Computed example of a mutant assay.
Amino acid sequence: MNKAVFLDRDGVINECMTERVKHVNRPSDLFILPGVAEAISKLNSAGFLIIIVTNQGGVGLRFMKPETLVRIHERLLSILKKQDAHIHDIAACIHKPKEVCACRKPNPGMIMTMAEKYEIDLANSFMVGDMETDIAAGKAAGTKTIRIGPEDENADFSAPSLLEAIPYILNQTTALKER
């Protein structure tokens, strides 16, 4: 079985709701947060599959076309690849925020689909996000959870950034190997 780190996109990997960009609706709106490529590269070296799971209701609401979302993700992958950071896959829920579906976080559908596709051991994997819905999805899927941003009593761990969460992830992995 494989181990994975599931990453929310907006607020974990790239800027959103900042002075520079509110929502990422075009490839030119994509700005990678500091330390993200280094963090992903370290997780790659530790043998984790890196999978983005992101709610992108802007497609369902028609703020952007599905093809635009594909171009945004192509730009994201290109930027990270140039910094030796590899994303294995991206799952995006493009349904409207109020639409009932199994994939939109806090539901675990995207995580479960990727876990089946890549034979992922969810108990030894992590969901990293900046919203309560990310933590709820990770818990529902059976992963360990990390909240980026303010402390969250529902998350297993909280850190100011993805890079600052890496020691926790690697220490948890080492502890599991020693059991």
Rank of each mutant, 00 (worst) to 15 (best):
A155V: 07
L163K: 10
A37M: 06
L170H: 15
S78Q: 04
H95K: 00
P150K: 13
L76E: 03
E178N: 14
L7A: 02
Q172A: 10
A136H: 09
A92G: 01
K22E: 08
L43Y: 06
M110N: 01
L122E: 01
K82D: 02
R62V: 11
K42F: 15
E151H: 14
M64S: 05
F63L: 05
K177T: 04
N25D: 15
N124P: 13
Q83Y: 05
G57R: 00
C103S: 00
D8N: 03
Q172K: 12
L33W: 08
V128I: 13
L170N: 04
K117W: 06
P150E: 15
P150L: 15
V24A: 10
F31P: 04
L76K: 10
D29A: 04
E67Y: 15
K96V: 14
Q56K: 07
M112H: 15
A159Y: 06
E38I: 07
D152T: 10
F63M: 14
L69R: 03
P66G: 02
A39C: 05
T68C: 15
H88E: 14
N107A: 10
F126K: 04
L170P: 09
C93I: 06
T174D: 09
V59S: 02
V5D: 08
N2H: 15
I148E: 07
A115Y: 04
S125I: 09
T145G: 11
E132H: 15
I72K: 10
A141G: 06
R104C: 00
E19A: 09
A85I: 01
I94K: 00
E38G: 15
D89N: 11
R26H: 08
M114N: 13
G58Y: 03
S45Q: 07
L61W: 09
G60D: 00
G57Q: 00
S158M: 03
L170M: 11
I72H: 07
F6G: 10
R26M: 05
E67D: 15
K65N: 15
